[in-house]
């Protein structure tokens, strides 16, 4: 069972209060993009064993979206951060590097 800290309202929310929103930091390809880019946006997802970045919504709480960085094997949560960003903040990356040296996720490391 996950407990994620909601950065919007500041409560530690149980997984059952949250709605999962899939993978984080996708680039939304629009008109004019190539078929490969559009396929990437629409269908291709990471399925890592280890560090992962996700979107969550505090559905049965404040109702706001946020991002979470966690480990899919140990369920360790590295941190949560606001939704209004296109990449994880340095602080979160540093924390992951502390715990999982040499981690990679898409083009991030």
């Amino acid at each position: 069972m996950l407990i994620l800290h909601c950065p919007n309202c500041g409560v530690d929310a149980d997984e059952t209060e949250l709605a999962p929103g899939g993978e984080a930091h996708l680039t939304r390809e629009g008109p004019g993009s190539s078929d490969e880019e559009f396929e990437q946006y629409l269908f291709l997802r990471e399925n890592p064993r280890g560090v992962h970045f996700e979107r969550w919504r505090h559905a049965m709480g404040c109702g706001k979206w946020f991002h979470a960085a966690r480990c899919t094997t140990t369920m360790e949560v590295f941190g949560t951060y606001p939704a209004q960003t296109s990449e994880p903040p340095q602080e979160i990356r540093d924390r992951i590097s502390d715990r999982r040296p040499g981690w990679r996720w898409r083009e991030l490391s």
């Binding site: 309202c9 409560v11 059952t16 209060e17 559905a59 049965m60 709480g61 404040c62």
Partner: peptide, 9 residues
């Protein structure tokens, strides 16, 4: 605090 009680918000 907003949360859920059993199955409802």
């Amino acid at each position: 605090r907003r949360t859920r009680l059993a199955q409802v918000p």
